[in-house]
């Protein structure tokens, strides 16, 4: 295979990547088991395919709303709520692995706290609040170091939820584009950084 053939072949493969491979290639949903030590690597996985999900309808609504608060839409990209990042968080906390099982307790309890706090302060569930009201709650728990002791657990939940929202969001095509990630494309040469970049950093 010469370089040109290789590139053509890989470009075709890359273009086809968005298409989900037939379900036959994917393992069935298995409770209590992960994907094993030899999973199929060249297929596309969606939340709920490998293990059952966790969120109740209320938890899902609260999670989606919080995703939207943490990463709202702007001129560069849609919001994490629009991209349904909460489905990824549900997939994450439902996975049968030790780190994820730990996160499950934190996230489920945290979403419960969020709705309870919303009712207490505003008489409504978190997802029903406007952004101003949601922000009043978030402001109290968004930085672990500054949160009051009685809100320490809620702050740890918020930190973990924000991390998961970010990971879920920036791995999507829209999120990657927002960051200005322009890699993962084949090219014949690697020319190094553009001169302009070198000049900005002072290493031209």
């Amino acid at each position: 295979m010469d370089r040109r053939q290789t590139l053509q072949w890989m470009l075709a493969a890359s273009a086809a990547m968005g298409v989900e491979v037939s379900a036959g290639a994917t393992p069935a949903v298995r409770k209590g088991k992960g994907y094993g030590t030899d999973p199929q690597l060249t297929t596309t996985y969606r939340s709920g395919k490998l293990w059952p999900l966790t969120f109740t309808a209320d938890q899902a609504r609260a999670a989606q709303a919080l995703c939207g608060l943490i990463i709202p839409a702007d001129e560069y990209s849609p919001s994490a709520a629009q991209l349904k990042v909460h489905l990824f968080i549900d997939e994450w906390i439902s996975a049968p692995y030790p780190d994820q099982l730990k996160d499950k307790d934190v996230i489920v309890a945290g979403l419960g706290w969020l709705d309870a706090e919303s009712r207490l302060r505003f008489g409504k569930r978190f997802a029903e609040l406007d952004v101003t009201a949601q922000s009043q709650i978030a402001d109290d728990i968004c930085w672990v170091q500054k949160a009051k002791p009685e809100r320490a657990a809620a702050a740890r939940f918020f930190k973990r939820f924000r991390d998961l929202t970010a990971g879920g969001f920036y791995t999507t095509p829209e999120g990657s584009k927002d960051l200005g990630f322009v890699g993962n494309v084949p090219s014949v040469t690697f020319d190094g950084p553009p001169l302009k970049v070198l000049q900005i950093v002072g290493v031209a």
């Binding site: 890359s14 990547m17 994907y35 690597l41 060249t42 996985y45 990824f88 996975a95 994820q100 999507t172």
Partner: peptide
């Protein structure tokens, strides 16, 4: 090759 983390379980 070229798979992004969006295609993978747990990203």
């Amino acid at each position: 090759m070229f798979q992004t983390n969006a295609d993978a379980p747990l990203r």
